[in-house]
Design a protein around this nucleic acid. Structure first.
Lengths: 256, 256
DNA sequence: TGATAAGTGTTACAGATTGGCATACTCTCG
DNA sequence: CGAGAGTATGCCAATCTGTAACACTTATCA
């Protein structure tokens, strides 16, 4: 794996518009002026509550591609909100293979796998140059105890994570390779849209292998699947660059 | 499906010991004298806190086999703790097939799929004559706000659910049929042990079809898998009655 | 700068696992 | 006792995997 170095500037013509436009990696950014505040933790909090949340958040230095946010079995201390970039969480199976348990994009919360046992159940790695807001969990608990809205919000975030995991359970236990890929692309599409980026044209930050490990397929099957979808004129693939050219057809693969 | 009728007394010789020994379906039972209190919600609460929790819990009439606790898209109002019996949660896919997302045993919490969206993401049905403690969620939130230990405990329960779901994700995306079955039996075994029942001899309350829908296999493959494990003298199967005869070998299927 | 190495992605083909169907048997319930 | 659900098993087909060869991109170093 070459996850060690920092992302190089794209050379392919036309991909510039697809690259991340992060909140500047500026620790002075606060929740109240972050453009992700309407899809992140602060939803449903009022100004003064956001201020209090802001006070416990640590805005660390950004992570380079391939750097770990935490590793499996690390002591659990914080959850993290993605400010810019993207991450993958993965676990190692008993025979040494890695399996991806999730991809995370701006505004999404990472690290809830550690809350129950006080140690992390998976490892989490930056897929590109990325920045995060660290939220020390003991302080989040203390503050949640003072702010019912925050407690409620965090219960909801965890509940949504559970629902998301159950949907993947369904996907993995009954969908074909092509359906899994369609579902994966649609999920990325809606999540890109949610953080103000194009829903039908984006750059995959993960490898075919990562996608395969997430969807329960081999990287060859992922590659073949993309080729097949392209042959049907549903998407257009140029290495990591994806364009969804027929959204309705992509949804139809799942429907009916 | 014949989920409509109430469980009949077992006729097979020797299965009596395998049947549920529920907390009596007596609404007067309280958390403080429930023998599940050390694996259910009240862990880490002191006497007075348990009392307060007790006050918001509704102990409804028991459910018969095949009865629904709630259905997909029902308004979310409560979470539930299993007192006796067992449940399955399932969802219907777009093509009308059902997929099981989880099985629940005494001391486990059901219904967290509704917390995020305020409506249930799955349906939940009793697999046998079962009883539950209903915990109205708005009251649980209010009480959690007063009792930091309870808030903490519920965060932990939800965190554990997330970890469990991620482990199933890994199982579904990389295990063979035989490994899935081994993992499933081991999970049941430890959960039976946790509620004071035999870890190596138990009665399956779900059909082969249910197991298949949960593990991403067809019922035929589940049946073949049980036969194969029996042929290897790892388990003994007599319809719904399972005996694990070689626990080490069962674990070895997953390990290494 | 250019050459080399390492990593990533695509495609073909053979092989393995699982699914789907048919059938027979078992168990439970009315 | 009969009906219907649930279970077991054989057979064949479909899908996905795994190997391998090759192309392409990115990183490293002379």
């Amino acid at each position: 794996m070459t996850y060690q170095s920092v992302e190089a500037p794209g050379k392919t013509i036309g991909t510039d518009a697809l690259r991340s436009r992060p909140c500047p990696h500026n620790p002075a950014v606060s929740c109240s002026n972050c453009r992700l505040s309407d899809l992140c933790l602060p939803i449903a909090l009022n100004k003064s509550e956001i201020q209090q949340l802001d006070n416990i958040i640590e805005r660390n230095r950004p992570l380079g591609k391939g750097e770990h946010l935490y590793r499996q079995r690390d002591e659990f201390r914080s959850v993290y909100a993605v400010r810019s970039g993207s991450f993958k969480s993965y676990t190692l199976t008993s025979d040494g293979k890695s399996r991806v348990t999730g991809f995370y994009m701006p505004g999404e919360i990472i690290g809830m796998d550690g809350i129950g046992s006080r140690s992390h159940g998976v490892s989490t790695m930056a897929l590109e140059h990325s920045s995060i807001c660290e939220i020390p969990f003991s302080q989040l608990e203390r503050l949640s105890h003072q702010l019912p809205n925050l407690q409620s919000r965090f219960f909801a975030i965890m509940g949504n994570e559970i629902v998301k995991d159950q949907q993947i359970h369904t996907l993995l236990s009954s969908y074909t390779a092509e359906q899994r890929l369609a579902s994966f692309l649609l999920s990325l599409s809606t999540r890109y849209a949610r953080c103000q980026r194009s829903p039908d044209r984006f750059l995959l930050q993960m490898t075919r292998g990562d996608i395969g490990e997430y969807l329960g397929l081999t990287l060859e099957t992922v590659s073949r699947g993309f080729s097949s979808l392209q042959k049907k004129a549903i998407i257009s693939v140029k290495s990591r660059e994806i364009a969804i050219t027929d959204m309705a057809a992509l949804k139809a693969i799942l429907g009916e």
